[in-house]
């Protein structure tokens, strides 16, 4: 059954008590985005499923829900979070240095449908910072490439300087297309929003799973193109972004209809979310 995202496997699912982690490394990614590599003060790093997120607590500033962006198959490795500086908490996180500590709760939420996609073609579509929550799923696919059919990755960003992980993307052994809305003189890649490229893909609609992460307006247009190819809503997966506070479905800040984005998502099949995508100002 494809319409249900896989459940979380995290050992700390549902925790309200932060654990203390230490910053191992701060990796600059773009002019406004960075990656924190975190290790627990005690014990082994958590296990997580691709698509899950943690609540990162910057002391004195507050908590923020941040997707895990690292490789889920690297045992004992530090946990990576790629963060765009956007507000008080993320600015405080940007100020952390190696050796500093912070609170971590998680992992929370549903995951990308990696098992359900076995034997099928897979299309990843990431827009802007949305590539970060997709990267664990891409890593999982690359780690087990024999399990999947044709794998394609489409990446879009506003400008070349906004593109994430460019040093490693060129080494991914799958078809990858990178496009920017506004090119610079030195840019030699594609120009234009990423969604029209979906139109030109060869897609076997009954045997393809799509995973999309980016701003909701981008996801809406990407979904439209996939549906035009004949893909079924239950085979298209998106990740929803809302104001998550407790991360365990208690507080209701992220409630959307009957769904709590933190607990029932953030990864949903489009079949589950299509009603909301059709509503204005949802």
């Amino acid at each position: 059954m494809m319409s249900t995202p896989e459940l979380a496997i995290g050992s700390q699912q549902g925790s309200l008590l932060p654990e203390i982690y230490r910053v191992e490394e701060v990796i600059p990614e773009t002019h406004d985005t960075f990656t924190l590599a975190l290790i627990p003060q005690e014990g082994e790093p958590m296990t997580f499923a691709p698509g899950q997120f943690n609540m990162l607590y910057a002391y004195g500033a507050g908590e923020s829900a941040i997707s895990i962006s690292g490789d889920p198959d690297l045992d004992g490795a530090s946990i990576l979070h790629t963060i765009r500086t956007a507000g008080t908490v993320t600015s405080a996180l940007r100020g952390l240095r190696p050796g500093d500590s912070l609170g971590v709760r998680g992992p929370f939420g549903t995951s990308w449908p990696m098992e359900a996609a076995r034997g099928k073609d897979v299309i990843f579509i990431g827009g802007g910072i949305g590539l970060a929550p997709l990267r664990p799923a891409i890593y999982r696919t690359l780690n087990r490439l024999e399990r999947y059919g044709r794998v394609r990755v489409l990446i879009g960003a506003r400008r070349p300087r906004d593109l994430l992980f460019m040093n490693e993307i060129a080494g991914w052994p799958v078809e990858t297309l990178v496009s920017v809305d506004r090119a610079t003189e030195r840019w030699r890649g594609h120009v234009g929003v990423v969604t029209p490229y979906v139109r030109n893909l060869e897609i076997d609609p009954g045997n393809t799973v799509a995973m999309i992460c980016g701003p909701e307006i981008m996801m809406r247009y990407a979904v439209m193109e996939l549906l035009n190819h004949g893909m079924r809503p239950k085979d298209i997966f998106i990740t929803m972004e809302r104001n998550m506070k407790c991360a365990v479905g208690f507080c209701g800040h992220c409630q959307l209809g009957s769904e709590f984005i933190c607990k029932d998502g953030p990864v949903f099949s489009y079949e589950t979310m299509q009603f909301w995508f059709a509503q204005r100002e949802f």
Partner: peptide, 22 residues
């Protein structure tokens, strides 16, 4: 028509809104 729509999407600045949860 497709090119016009693509141009409109470029004008929309699809990636302008933060997609992270912070």
């Amino acid at each position: 028509t497709n090119r016009l729509q693509e141009t409109r999407l470029q004008l929309l600045d699809l990636y302008g809104a933060p997609a992270d949860r912070s």
